[in-house]
Write a protein that binds this DNA or RNA. Structure first.
Length: 193
DNA sequence: AAAGAGATGGTCT
DNA sequence: GACCATCTCTTTT
């Protein structure tokens, strides 16, 4: 299923993460699912994000480039997937110029299509709990380490971004980021009102 | 409704 | 060996 006529330009993502983050609200996250008997498209609207930069003590890139964070220093628009607390797979959209260590964490998504697949992956949870947290987004969209580094702007990727024409909110909610111990005063979490 | 704790494994010191 | 960009379940107001 095609989502929207708008092509997302890579240059759009080559700005600093705190600029890109609120503009990513209401964009669509799309994942191909190969479970069951036929391919299904799982998609959802991004409603909460967080920005991380290399100047930022809470960021994985704060102490320089490493094997884990390598794709965050690569070209914008690619996926940085990391394992959180040994259990959860969390998805970031890389931003900034090639060589910058920046990204936007996808914190919450509202499912649009493939809801039956999401419900199965998030068994025994009510719809409100399907993808309202970064680890839950990982579960709902079947994100794994194999998605690390994929180009989210290439519409042939199994994991990608789309735009269905819904503009970002004119007044996004902004507040402190969640689950960090450093950089807590920086209001780089953004949410749809 | 809020607070606390266990799970669980890669990454970095 | 410590530290997590978290989630879930249990216990306590």
């Amino acid at each position: 299923m095609a989502v929207g006529p708008v092509v997302l330009e890579r240059s759009w993502f080559e700005r600093d993460a705190p600029i890109v983050a609120p503009l990513l609200l209401n964009k669509v996250l799309i994942a191909d699912s190969y479970e069951g008997t036929s391919a299904t498209v799982v998609s959802g609207r991004i409603i909460e994000v967080e920005a991380y930069t290399s100047d930022d003590p809470a960021s994985h890139t704060y102490r320089g480039r490493s094997r884990r964070n390598d794709v965050m220093f690569g070209p914008a628009g690619h996926a940085y997937v990391y394992t959180s607390y040994g259990i959860h797979q969390c998805l970031n959209v890389v931003t900034g110029r090639d060589g910058d260590g920046q990204g936007v964490l996808i914190r919450a998504v509202v499912p649009i299509t493939g809801i039956d697949i999401i419900a199965a992956r998030r068994a025994h949870r009510v719809p409100r709990e399907f993808a309202n947290g970064p680890g839950k987004v990982g579960q709902a969209f079947g994100i794994s380490a194999m998605h690390n580094g994929v180009d989210l702007l290439d519409q042939s990727s199994r994991l990608r971004l789309g735009d269905d024409g819904t503009p970002p909110p004119t007044t996004p909610l902004a507040g402190p980021r969640i689950g960090i111990t450093k950089g807590v005063s920086t209001p780089w979490r953004f949410r749809v009102p």
